[in-house]
Nucleic acid binder design. Structure first.
Lengths: 189, 189
DNA sequence: ACTACCATTATTACCTGGTACTAATAGTAG
DNA sequence: CTACTATTAGTACCAGGTAATAATGGTAGT
């Protein structure tokens, strides 16, 4: 026995996860066992065949693109009191940042704050009409940005003013004042 | 002849682009021709076989996610005079908008303008420090937003002021004033 | 030492979705 | 009537498998 079965199987899983494009034949020579052994292993581990794996990667792609851009709130909402206050968290990933220096693009922080402000307004149609923002510290990949939004005023003209402050730890990285238009002008529900 | 060859081929290309996961057999029944005809068509149009198409989509996955979010300029830059002015165009797609009303999210317009402002500055490291924006008209899916940015001042403290105005046709939909920090403080190169 | 059991390997038939090639048929234009 | 094009048919072959059945080898229990 070259390597215990169990060990080979866990390693097999690892190998395939890292490179789903590998054939059973390649795996067989890699582990120095027969193709049949690899197939028995895949059966036991419920790992699908090469083509299925490739197809899976391909179909995942479309979903992925959507979740990134079509997301209603950029970041994860962790608290929401409608028409009052809300909090969301966004972890800065490499795709949110400039590749040169790993600093988050300004519009990512803006997007988090803007989405939060819109979500905060309990209305069918809420649209940002004005924003005034400051980027007080650069944010790097890997940092978690906590955005806190609260409504400062519900005006009579169908607009609301919302303040958003975003933090990394206890450091303020972003300050924004958003004016949001509400479709229905009454404040109550 | 059900449909002229040429017409079928262009339609074939279209069909496969929209659904790369379709087999020759399915295409054959769809176009009401034989499998061989489909294969001849694919040969002529240099369209690869199903598995190759799937593999292509799968390998493109990583790259593609990048192009959407990591894109240096959101939208297509069509004119750039460094440190002076720049223009980009962005077509509003469904994923840029609220699904309920097909109105573009504010941060999409902000992202276009912000990216353009950053790209305009001829510097290794340019970061937005402040922005003041107004959304003067809602933009709908299918509209093409033309953003025009120009530098209004290069300040001595390493900051530049950039004005961005975005239009759909001749209607102004967005106005923004961005303050951008430059890493190297000299204006010349 | 014998048996039971497990892991491994081998073999065979079959599947999908093709490539590559050759040949036959149908329809149309000159 | 012929030439040409489009289409269809058929065959051999391929990769990368599934499914099932059988043979081999080693190790543990008693």
């Amino acid at each position: 026995m070259r390597v215990p079965k169990k060990e080979r199987q866990t390693e097999l899983q690892h190998t395939i996860e890292q490179n789903p494009f590998i054939t059973d034949e390649a795996l067989a020579t890699h582990f120095n066992v027969s193709i049949q052994t690899i197939r028995l292993d895949r059966m036991e581990m419920k790992i699908p065949e090469l083509r299925e794996r490739i197809k899976h990667v391909a179909t995942e792609r479309l979903d992925d693109v959507r979740t990134l851009t079509e997301n209603e709130v950029i970041g994860d909402m962790i608290d929401l009191k409608l028409d009052t206050s809300a909090i969301s968290i966004l972890e800065i990933l490499p795709e949110h940042a400039f590749s040169r220096n790993a600093i988050a693009r300004g519009h990512i922080l803006f997007a988090q704050a803007n989405s939060l402000a819109i979500a905060l307004i309990d209305d069918e149609l809420a649209l940002t009409t004005k924003a005034n923002v400051q980027f007080t510290r650069s944010v790097h990949v890997g940092e978690r940005v906590v955005a806190k939004a609260f409504v400062s005023s519900h005006r009579q003209d169908g607009r609301s003013d919302i303040n958003v402050e975003s933090f990394v730890g206890d450091e303020c990285v972003f300050i924004g004042e958003f004016t949001v238009y509400r479709s229905s002008k009454e404040e109550s529900k």
